[in-house]
Design a protein around this nucleic acid. Structure first.
Lengths: 361, 361
DNA sequence: CTGAAAGCGCTTACAG
DNA sequence: CTGAAAGCGCTTACAG
């Protein structure tokens, strides 16, 4: 294309070459109805010849004061978040809402810890607002995002962020329902595989003290729900064996199951606090020659697409819907509106990986 | 936070309140080493009090001329792309590369057709360059992106875009290998389930004429590879039965398998041109009471994570790696460099869903 | 170590 | 239907 003689074409250079005002050229792109047909054609033609791709995006948004872009803040490395089908389904819902509204979507990793006055990704992202997805309590990036004073909605965690909209689940109630199901099936010795409870890498048993102080509200509430249900049946909290894995991966689920069963071979049910972990646990059971659910019950959480295909008993949450709602909350937020709080329904999906507790050998 | 008396704080307002130049305040954020410790503290303190979140992102990037943001252009609705684990793995690789380089990632849907001089998402996105992911030949959004004269890399399709880097596979060679495997196992009557060959919604049989003209290079080349291999064994092209589905989903795979088998119950192998379709086809076989691979061989393409878990015979491509390479190509592109072309290796993964052709009944 | 000045490219009232 | 002018908030040489 006929670019390249001289400097980059701009609105100004096009206007000058046609002996028009820059306002008119701008109008051709922004308000074509204000410009006569003939002039429009002349301008577009000149632009084409000059290799002018239309108004510069940054300058435009600078002037207009908005970017038509929504930021999604992930706690984790992006590449990790994208390996978790639950996050991906959520994101897909956000994307639907964005597309309808003509918004672009920018993925912002919380990434490495902040330096005090260095400009981070979160500060640097050009967005009209944030969706903050599942971030630990007191995350510094969360603060940074909130400081920008843009309309934001928090998803899942932290469970109370001041002055922002929130959408998430009642995790305690949901796991209570799961526990009730397991108890009804005769399970008494239950193990839990959870993802990280703290921000630094740790894999191993999690004491009650540890999970009670977990910086991730979701995991904390899920375990709490389980414990409360057991307590209601007279099973003390320290009966619940919890194994923690930093990563949320299939491999972590397999490893978690082995760790649990090595420690307590008498467990009859393993509750994984995410489907990906559960799928890994299923593989672990296979490796040990245990048949599911006859020898061992395994459950998940989230109901990702693969869960139904492998027959996983799990707690369903409306992942895509959650993303759509988060997007909508952003779109409908208005100045001075009080923060909204939206609790989404969950349901227990009983499938093939859970069954009655085996009789004691 | 103590905002809200008067207008939004800016670099200028902070500078004025401290009786400093704006350059100094800017330096506190951008070049702290140029400012004395004491002054830094004073400025940061004043900023905190005023609720100033640091230099405005748009203004900053406007001035600097770069946005530290990479755009990924998807052909499809974003929400669809995110439902395809192959795209997601790819994206995850791109994200890795971006994170290392401190880039943000913006997801740009090609979305609805362009109006001539209206500003589209692609024009409006604030990015330093594009990764163009699997877009049909002659896509107008591709043109728009390329017109911006930003460093861009095309992934998979179209297979020849002028003046841009490209990364993808040798799809013909890859499917040739697959066909050779099937032929060796005695398969002669082979069906194909492909995703869309054109841009408008169509589900049904695809004639040779149709797939030869497919606007999606990937599908075209995969089918061509199959046909060539069959031809080499004396099986004419029109022996290959191709069923097309617009969506790339599990459901489409199931429907595709049924359509194929309703039409030609004597098929012994079904090649799905994507793993998600193959997973759906597996379900279809189950519904028909066919045992895989004894009654029917089913194969996929891509080797997404779930493929190995269900034992799917498939062609493996390095999805995450592909994303990383695309990101790296963008990062390492330099002015005046000739376009680079990177062909990634594929390999046939023989697993449990393929086997010898059943003897004729 | 700190400051005065230019200017990035555009859109938007407003006037004619 | 077209144009002159202001100004969005910042960073960067450059000078002192």
């Amino acid at each position: 294309m006929g670019t390249s003689h001289g400097s980059k074409p701009t609105l100004t250079s096009i206007a000058r070459s046609l002996d028009l005002s820059i306002a008119t050229v701008s109008n051709v792109y922004n308000h074509p109805e204000r410009v006569s047909e003939g002039l429009q054609q002349r301008v577009l033609e000149a632009a084409r010849k000059a290799g002018y791709p239309g108004p510069d995006a940054v300058a435009r948004q600078f002037r207009r004061g908005k970017s038509d872009t929504l930021g999604v803040l992930f706690t984790d490395e992006l590449s990790f978040a994208l390996r978790d089908p639950a996050s991906v389904s959520f994101l897909s819902g956000v994307a639907s809402a964005c597309e309808e509204a003509g918004l672009n979507l920018i993925l912002v990793p919380a990434g490495p810890p902040l330096q005090t006055n260095r400009i981070s990704s979160v500060s640097n992202a050009i967005v009209d607002g944030f969706i903050i997805y599942s971030v630990p309590d007191d995350d510094p990036h969360l603060q940074t995002a909130l400081n920008r004073n843009l309309p934001s909605v928090v998803v899942d965690e932290p469970d109370s962020a001041p002055d922002t909209d929130w959408v998430g689940l009642d995790d305690q109630a949901a796991t209570f329902e799961l526990a009730a199901h397991l108890l009804a099936q005769g399970h008494r010795r239950i193990g839990v595989v959870t993802t990280r409870l703290g921000v630094s890498r740790y894999n191993g048993p999690a004491t009650e003290e540890r999970w009670l102080r977990a910086r991730y509200a979701v995991q904390r509430n899920r375990i709490l729900g389980l414990v409360n249900a057991l307590a209601a049946s007279g099973i003390p909290a320290d009966e619940l064996v919890v194994e923690e894995r930093f990563d949320n991966s299939v491999e972590a689920g397999t490893a978690g199951l082995h760790a649990l069963l090595d420690r307590r071979p008498d467990l009859t049910a393993i509750c994984c606090l995410g489907d990906v972990l559960a799928i890994g646990a299923l593989e672990g059971a296979r490796q040990r020659g245990l048949s599911v659910p006859d020898d061992l019950t395994i459950t998940g959480y989230d109901d990702v697409p693969e869960a139904s295909r492998v027959g996983l008993t799990t707690i369903r949450q409306p992942l895509i819907e959650k993303g759509k709602i988060a997007g909508q909350m952003f779109l409908t937020r208005e100045q001075g509106m009080p923060p909204r709080r939206r609790v989404l329904p969950t349901s227990l999906e009983v499938r093939r990986t859970s069954g009655p507790a085996p009789l004691q050998g």
